[in-house]
C-alpha cells in the first residue's frame, strides 16, 4: 500500500527515483505449505530436508529515473514480485542495495484489507497507518479513495462480504488516489470488471508525468507496450534485458516461443 514520508518532493525529469545495485535475494522456504510439528517429525528420520533455498533474485542492477514508466515482464517465478517487495522494503535483500528517492505507493498482488472482519474504511485506515501515514493524511484522501472505488455504502461493510472485484477496486483506489512520487503496481490490473479496468488504466495514464516514476508488473504485454517507455525482462531471478518496450517484448516472445517449441518437440 502506501508508504509516504512526512514531506513532499519535487523531482526533475531524469532525476534518480530508484537505484537497484547488485541486488540478490535468497530465502529458505519450507516444502510443506503449512509447517507443522507433525510434518517435521515425519521428515526427521528420513534425513530429508524440510526447507529448500530459493534464489529469487541474482545480481540485479538497474536505475529508474523520474518520468519513466517501467514495465516488468517475465514468466511465473521469474522474480518480479520478489523484486517489487525488495524495492518497497517488504523483504530485505540478501545482497546489494536499494535506494529509493521519494515516496512510494504500492499495489501488490494481494491489495488492501488485511482483516476481513473489519470494514473497508477501517482497513484503509489501518493499511495507511501501518505504512506510516498520519491519520490526517488518510482523512484528506479518504473521500477520494471511496469515490474512486465506487463502493458506495459498502465501504462501511465488513470486507469479508466483498466480492473479489470489490477488493480489487478498493485496493487500486488506495494506491492510485494518493499521488505518490513512485507508484508500483503488480498484477493488479488483471482483476476487476472491464469498466473498472479501463478506469484504472486511464488513472495510470493520468499519473504519468515528468516528476513521477511508475512501475507496472504485468503479463499483459499489450498493456505494457502501450503504457511504458522502458521495459525490463526478468528470468529466474536474473535481468535478461532492458530497453525500449517493443524490442524487449519481442525478445521475450521469441524466448517463450522457443521454449514452447522445445517442449512440444519433447512430446513427439
Amino acid at each position: 500500500m502506501i508508504s509516504l514520508s512526512a514531506y513532499s518532493h519535487t523531482h526533475s525529469e531524469h532525476g534518480l527515483a530508484i537505484s537497484v545495485q547488485g541486488l540478490g535475494l535468497t530465502y529458505k522456504t519450507s516444502i510443506d505449505k503449512k509447517p507443522t510439528l507433525k510434518a517435521r517429525i515425519k521428515t526427521l528420520g528420513r534425513g530429508r530436508k524440510h526447507t529448500r533455498i530459493v534464489r529469487a533474485l541474482d545480481d540485479v542492477t538497474f536505475d529508474v529515473t523520474y518520468g519513466t514508466v517501467l514495465g516488468v515482464i517475465g514468466s511465473n517465478g521469474a522474480g518480479k514480485s520478489s523484486l517489487m517487495r525488495t524495492i518497497t522494503g517488504i523483504i530485505p535483500p540478501t545482497q546489494g542495495r536499494v535506494e529509493v528517492y521519494g515516496t512510494v505507493s504500492t499495489l501488490l498482488a494481494l491489495g488492501v484489507g488485511f482483516n476481513p472482519s473489519m470494514t473497508g474504511r477501517e482497513n484503509v485506515y489501518l493499511g495507511g497507518l501501518a505504512a506510516g501515514m498520519s491519520r490526517e493524511e488518510i482523512d484528506t484522501n479518504f473521500d477520494a479513495i471511496a469515490e474512486f472505488s465506487e463502493l458506495g455504502e459498502s465501504i462501511d461493510a465488513p470486507m469479508r462480504t466483498y466480492s473479489s472485484g470489490m477488493y480489487a477496486r478498493l485496493a487500486f483506489s488506495v494506491a492510485a488516489v494518493v499521488e505518490p512520487d513512485i507508484l508500483i503496481i503488480d498484477e493488479a490490473l488483471s482483476t476487476g470488471d472491464a469498466k473498472f479496468k479501463e478506469k484504472s488504466l486511464n488513472r495510470i495514464k493520468e499519473l504519468r508525468s515528468a516528476d513521477r516514476a511508475l512501475i507496472l508488473v504485468s503479463h499483459a504485454l499489450k498493456t505494457i507496450e502501450e503504457m511504458c517507455n522502458e521495459v525490463i525482462w526478468l528470468n529466474k531471478g536474473t535481468l535478461m534485458m532492458r530497453g525500449n518496450p517493443s524490442e524487449v517484448i519481442e525478445a521475450y516472445r521469441k524466448f517463450v516461443d522457443a521454449r514452447k517449441s522445445a517442449s512440444s518437440d519433447e512430446d513427439v
Binding site: S5, G15, S19, P92, G96, R97, V98, V100, Y101, G132
Partner: peptide, 25 residues
Amino acid sequence: MDKPVSIYEPFHAGLPPMREYMRSL
C-alpha cells in the same frame, strides 16, 4: 542529487538496524 528517502540493505547478524526500526515503530 537528493538524498535517498529509504535505503534497503541486507541485515547484519540477522537483526534489522535497531535505531531505524524503533523510530519506525
